[in-house]
């Protein structure tokens, strides 16, 4: 009898320990978000979004150049990365047994784990070194390379959830294969594909490492993809590691904006498919 009680106590104790782990795991999130709001919110005003940076040591100024830069770099990355990723995903789902699908799937998983800094070095050797100057476009290519495998995998997973009967019904009605794929299967999965794409955008929007020696960063407002360009994550890095107190203040505010963008994208991504599909971690 005593042994049974001891075993029960041990069980309760271990479960309690794991509950404690949950608290410890959620704590950093709350701490980080809390500090960001506490230190960054006070600097968020209209000037922050509409003004350019001022010389070091002066107060005031904004990060409009970086907001524009991030939009342009990430937008271009989407133009390159999303079609490739979604197409690859559809291929893997439509021809699941083919050798190419197996290879693409495995290579995507491997590329997904590739450090983003390595992709940055690749974009540098490929584009910056051959053109002999830093450019926002090289940064976009690096981000696109990070997006493709992510989007490929989520698209495939989402399409695989479409019931076979739907596909069979369309085929039985005399639809050709491509038409079935595009107007029935892909259309049904569209919210899922949007989710996957948004998550990929959210992830690359916060990437700093691949932009360090491609887009490089800049103090000026620029719309030229062939030139160096500022981006929000680069601004956070430069200002956080710089020596001035005003810079640190701006780093907190910029980080708050960056994280709001990323969190809104991630939450929107999950809401797009809420209750429709199983989430793909």
């Amino acid at each position: 009898m005593n042994r049974a009680a001891a075993r029960r106590r041990r069980s309760h104790f271990m479960v309690g320990l794991m509950g404690l782990a949950v608290v410890l795991a959620v704590l950093p999130l709350l701490l980080i978000l809390g500090t960001l709001v506490a230190k960054g919110a006070s600097s968020l005003n209209l000037a922050f979004f509409t003004k350019m940076p001022v010389p070091a040591g002066e107060t005031g100024g904004g990060v409009m150049h970086a907001i524009v830069g991030t939009l342009m770099i990430v937008g271009t990355a989407c133009l390159i990365g999303l079609p490739l990723g979604i197409g690859g995903g559809i291929y893997c789902a439509e021809y699941p047994g083919s050798k190419l699908a197996t290879v693409t799937r495995f290579v995507s998983d491997v590329l997904n784990g590739t450090p983003s800094i390595v992709v940055g070095v690749f974009a540098w050797t490929w584009i910056v070194a051959t053109q002999k100057h830093f450019s926002a476009f090289a940064g976009s290519v690096a981000l696109a390379i990070l997006m493709v495998p992510m989007v490929t995998r989520t698209t495939e997973e989402m399409i695989k959830l479409v019931p076979h009967s739907l596909r069979e019904a369309a085929l039985a009605l005399g639809y050709s294969r491509w038409r079935t794929s595009l107007t029935v299967v892909v259309r049904t999965t569209l919210p899922g594909i949007v989710t996957g794409s948004l998550l990929a955008v959210a992830r690359v929007a916060g990437e700093t490492a691949p932009l360090l020696f491609t887009a490089l960063g800049s103090q000026y407002l620029s719309f030229d993809l062939d030139q160096p360009m500022a981006a929000l994550p680069l601004v956070v890095f430069t200002y956080a590691t710089g020596p001035y107190e005003e810079w640190h203040q701006l780093a907190w505010a910029t980080a708050l904006v960056l994280i709001l963008v990323v969190l809104v994208l991630s939450v929107a991504a999950r809401l797009a498919t809420r209750g429709k599909f199983r989430q793909n971690g």
């Binding site: 490739l84 690859g88 291929y91 439509e94 190419l100 390379i145 493709v148 490929t152 491509w178």
Partner: peptide, 26 residues
């Protein structure tokens, strides 16, 4: 329809090839 199917498959194959080709190039 057959032509459409072939075109569809060819286009998808190109995008699916992009991933392994990128890895090789990298």
């Amino acid at each position: 329809a057959r032509f459409g199917d072939r075109l569809f498959k060819a286009a998808l194959t190109l995008t699916a090839l992009a991933v392994p080709v990128l890895l090789g190039f990298l």
